Amino acid sequence: MTEYKLVVVGAGGVGKSALTIQLIQNHFVDEYDPTIEDSYRKQVVIDGETCLLDILDTAGQEEYSAMRDQYMRTGEGFLCVFAINNTKSFEDIHHYREQIKRVKDSEDVPMVLVGNKCDLPSRTVDTKQAQDLARSYGIPFIETSAKTRQGVDDAFYTLVREIRKHKEKMSKDGKKKKKKSKTKCVIM
């Protein structure tokens, strides 16, 4: 069974824990209790493949930012979460993405942009803004509501699919490099 290491990042209060708990335990946590770091595991079937999701729910508070490099190193894919009623959390996505790329030393890291709290009427981040940002990053965008469960499975499952595509691409690139290195030079 394939294991996928997913990391949920975003500013404090955007609903990272609520999304994760909704996926794992099928219930909505409405009281806000700032996370330092929590880890969850769940076995699911995605596109006919049974897999184990190892999900790291991270601290959004700035005082825990020193811990970010460590979990970013171990993560295979990242859910970059903002709240649709919090423009600052949307603007912060850029910083999370840049930090992930720096730590992973790669421009090509599996990510999904997630606009959470889409059940709320007080939207300050337009869907088109988020779609445009995701398009500019070359990553999928999904709106979710941890409260109603809308888009929750889709967000995590899409990230797994992005990781699969990335692994497939990397193995193809690896095979191309191996083929090239088999060419021999004969000096007579």
Rank of each mutant, 00 (worst) to 15 (best):
S65M: 07
N86W: 05
A83P: 14
S89L: 09
R102N: 05
D126P: 05
C80R: 01
D126F: 09
L120E: 14
I100E: 00
L120N: 01
L113W: 06
S122E: 14
V125W: 11
G75I: 13
V109G: 02
R102K: 03
A66S: 12
T124K: 11
M72S: 07
D119M: 03
Y71S: 11
S106V: 09
T74E: 14
T74W: 10
F82R: 01
F78I: 11
V81S: 04
G75M: 08
K101T: 04
S106Q: 09
S65H: 05
S122T: 11
A83H: 06
C118G: 12
Y96G: 03
S106R: 07
I100H: 01
Q70H: 07
V81T: 07
E63T: 09
R123M: 12
G115I: 12
N116P: 00
S89F: 03
Q70G: 07
K104N: 07
G75C: 15
R97Q: 12
M72A: 10
V81K: 01
T74L: 09
R123S: 14
L79V: 10
T124W: 08
V109T: 04
G77D: 00
V125S: 12
Y71L: 11
E98A: 07
E107N: 09
H95R: 13
R97H: 05
Y71K: 11
L113R: 00
V112N: 01
K104Y: 11
M67A: 12
L113V: 05
R97L: 15
E63S: 05
D92A: 14
P110C: 04
N116R: 00
R123I: 10
D105G: 15
Q99V: 11
E76Y: 10
I84S: 15
V103F: 12
Q99N: 02
R102H: 04
I93W: 05
S65Y: 06
S89T: 05
G75P: 08
P121S: 13
C118M: 07
N86L: 01
M72T: 09
G115M: 11
V109P: 06
L79D: 00
G115R: 02
L79R: 00
V112D: 01
K104A: 08
D105L: 04
D92C: 01
D119Q: 02
A66G: 10
P110F: 04
A66E: 13
E63P: 09
A66F: 04
V112Q: 00
E107L: 13
I100W: 08
Y64L: 07
Y64P: 14
V109H: 06
M67F: 10
D108S: 08
C118N: 09
Y71E: 14
I84R: 11
S106H: 08
L113S: 02
M72P: 09
C80N: 03
D69N: 06
Y96Q: 03
T74M: 14
M72K: 05
R97A: 15
F90G: 05
T124C: 10
D92G: 06
N116D: 05
E91S: 01
M67W: 04
Y64T: 13
I100F: 06
M72W: 07
N86I: 05
V103T: 02
S122G: 14
R68C: 08
Q99Y: 07
E63Y: 02
F90Q: 06
R102G: 12
V109A: 03
V114M: 09
F82K: 01
S65Q: 09
R73L: 08
F90M: 09
L79I: 12
C80I: 14
M67S: 14
P121W: 06
D105C: 14
V112Y: 00
T124A: 13
A83D: 15
L120V: 08
L120Y: 06
M72E: 09
N86A: 03
L120I: 06
D126A: 08
G75K: 03
K104G: 06
V114F: 03
R68G: 12
P110Q: 03
S122Y: 09
K101L: 10
C80M: 14
E76V: 15
F78L: 06
D126E: 11
M72Q: 07
K101W: 05
D69P: 07
E98M: 02
E91G: 06
K104T: 07
D108K: 04
N86R: 03
K117W: 15
V81L: 10
P110T: 03
K88L: 07
V109S: 03
Y96L: 15
K101R: 12
R102Q: 05
R73C: 11
E76S: 10
D119K: 04
P121F: 09
S106A: 08
V114K: 02
F78V: 12
M67P: 12
E76R: 05
F78W: 04
S106Y: 11
G75W: 09
S106P: 06
P110I: 02
V125C: 13
F78D: 00
V103G: 06
G77W: 00
S122H: 12
C80V: 14
R102Y: 02
R102D: 02
K104D: 01
K88I: 06
V103K: 05
R68Q: 13
R102S: 12
M67H: 13
S106N: 08
I100L: 06
S106K: 05
I93V: 10
L113M: 07
E91P: 04
K88W: 14
K88D: 03
V125E: 13
D105V: 11
V112W: 01
Y71T: 14
V112F: 04
M111L: 06
G77S: 02
K88E: 12
Y64G: 15
M67E: 15
E107R: 06
V125P: 11
K88P: 03
N116W: 00
D119G: 08
Q70D: 15
L113T: 01
E91T: 01
M111I: 13
V103M: 10
V112E: 01
S122A: 11
K88R: 07
R68T: 12
L79K: 00
Y71M: 14
R102M: 08
V103H: 10
D126N: 10
V112K: 00
R123A: 14
F82M: 14
S122F: 08
D108Y: 07
T124L: 10
E107M: 08
D126C: 10
V112T: 01
S89Y: 01
D108T: 09
R73I: 05
D105N: 14
D119Y: 02
V114H: 01
L79W: 01
Y64S: 14
V112R: 00
H95V: 05
K104E: 06
L113C: 10
L120T: 08
R123C: 13
G75H: 07
V125I: 12
V114W: 01
